[in-house]
Every structure is written in C-alpha cells, then in structure tokens.
C-alpha cells in the first residue's frame, strides 16, 4: 500500500477490531450478561441511551460542568501562568501550590468537596482543580520558551513593551496553551464523572453510571463509558481544529 495515511488508518482500525474480538471472546467464555455483556448488546444499550428521555439533559449537564471548570481553570491558569512566567518570585510562590494540587488524590478532593459544596458544584470544583495545574504549568513553560534573542532584537529597534507582549509573548505561548488545554480536558472529563458518581447530582453521566451499576446493568455502565469517551474525543478534535486555525505558522 502506497498511501501512508491510509496505512496508519488501517492499522488503527485493526487495533480496534482486535479489541472488540477479545471482548467478544471473553463474553462468550463468561457467558453472562450480568458480568460481561457482549459487544452487540452494549452497542444496542448505547443506541438505546442515545434516544432515551433526558439524554440531552444528562450529557448536557456533564458537559456544562466540565466546561465551567475548564473556563475557570483556563482564565486563572493563563493569567497566573503569565505572571509566574515573567516573575521569578511569583513562580516560587505558585509552584508549591501547583504541586500540592497535582499530587493530592482526586478522591480526597471529592470527599472534602462533598462536605464543603452543594451537590451541583462538587464536579465543577473537582474539574477545576484537576485542569488548572496543567494549563498554568504549560503557560509558564511557554513564557520561558520565548526566544531572548528576539526580545533583544525588539529592544534594539525600540519596539514598545506592550507591542512585545502582544506580538511576541502571546503568539509564543499559544501552542503551549493549546497543548495544556488538551491534556487538561482529557483529565477533566474523567474528574467530572468521578465527581458526579460520588456527589449524585440530579442529571449527569456519573449519576446514571452509578444507578446502572447499582442495578447491575453492566452493559449500560459500559454504554455510558463509551459516550463519555466520545465526548472527550469530540472536544479533543475541537481543540485541534481551533489550534490549526490559529497556529498557522508552523
């Protein structure tokens, strides 16, 4: 095969096919819908969920929580990251905070959030705390990657400070912001769903997963999982699309 893109696509397809066949084989061996449902019954359950009542409301609530957490961590992460990247003292101040947040187990945060916040806020809070360090650290790295030589060149030619920030610093950190946002969201969706499982808001993928697990509806647990994966993938695609439209110079 000559087309390299087609070749890699085919390889990925084979990988998925292999995964599905292993699943199918395991489900035949177990032969119990209660423990491991077959791929077909899970896909069927997924389709059933897609057309079920309240489906939009359920995934809407989860996406909404994730996006609010993301927006908060984005705004705070970018602004504190710029401050820390340009000021060594502020970086020294911020670093221990970032490290503590990042190394605290999510479950501890959730247990505390359950005590401190209203049910609807728990997942938002968790999402925010998981995503914020990613974005902030990436922005700091981005600022540090700015080419000192270009700054010197700008100064010699008497380019103003504001213009240097706008035309050198901001474009330089843009790719870092995107890669930070993409890994942040990857972890963020998981955090939101864990938060929902434990806090049980009225609507939310996590809430429904928990309910399905209680009734031993394993195919439904997996079906919600597939939907969560698809949502995460969709947002990854959106971020990549926006990045491609903005970072055109590479």
């Amino acid at each position: 095969m000559k087309n390299p893109i087609l070749k890699t696509r085919l390889t990925s397809f084979i990988s998925i096919l292999l995964l599905l066949s292993l699943w199918k084989i395991a489900s035949i061996i177990y032969n119990s819908e209660l423990i491991l449902p077959s791929p077909e019954s899970t896909i069927f359950a997924t389709l059933k969920l897609l057309i079920s009542e309240n489906f939009i409301q359920i995934i809407g609530a989860t996406i909404f929580r994730g996006l609010i957490g993301f927006t908060l961590s984005f705004i705070l992460g970018v602004s504190l990251g710029i401050l820390a990247g340009t000021n060594i003292l502020f970086e020294a101040f911020l670093k221990p905070i970032l490290i503590s947040i990042r190394s605290t187990p999510i479950i501890s945060l959730i247990l505390l959030a359950l005590i401190w916040f209203k049910v609807d806020l728990v997942a938002v809070f968790i999402a925010f705390l998981t995503m914020f360090p990613f974005i902030c650290t990436n922005v700091i790295d981005g600022i540090k990657s700015v080419d000192k030589d270009i700054i010197e060149m700008s100064r010699v030619h008497q380019v103003g400070k504001f213009k240097i920030i706008k035309e050198v610093f901001l474009p330089a950190i843009t790719p870092f912001i995107f890669s930070g946002a993409s890994s942040a969201l990857g972890f963020g969706w998981r955090a939101v769903i864990i938060g929902e499982v434990l806090s049980q808001p009225k609507f939310g993928i996590g809430t429904l997963m928990q309910t399905a697990q209680t009734y031993l509806l394993v195919n439904e647990v997996i079906a919600w999982t597939i939907i969560a994966v698809l949502i995460s993938y969709l947002f990854e695609l959106i971020i990549r699309k926006i990045e491609k439209a903005i970072v055109i110079w590479k």
Binding site: D149, V168, P171, W249, K250
Partner: peptide, 8 residues
C-alpha cells in the same frame, strides 16, 4: 542569526 518572528 536572522532573529525573525516565526509567526510573522
């Protein structure tokens, strides 16, 4: 070195 801005 040329010291050009890569995004311009």
């Amino acid at each position: 070195e040329p010291r050009l801005l890569p995004w311009k």
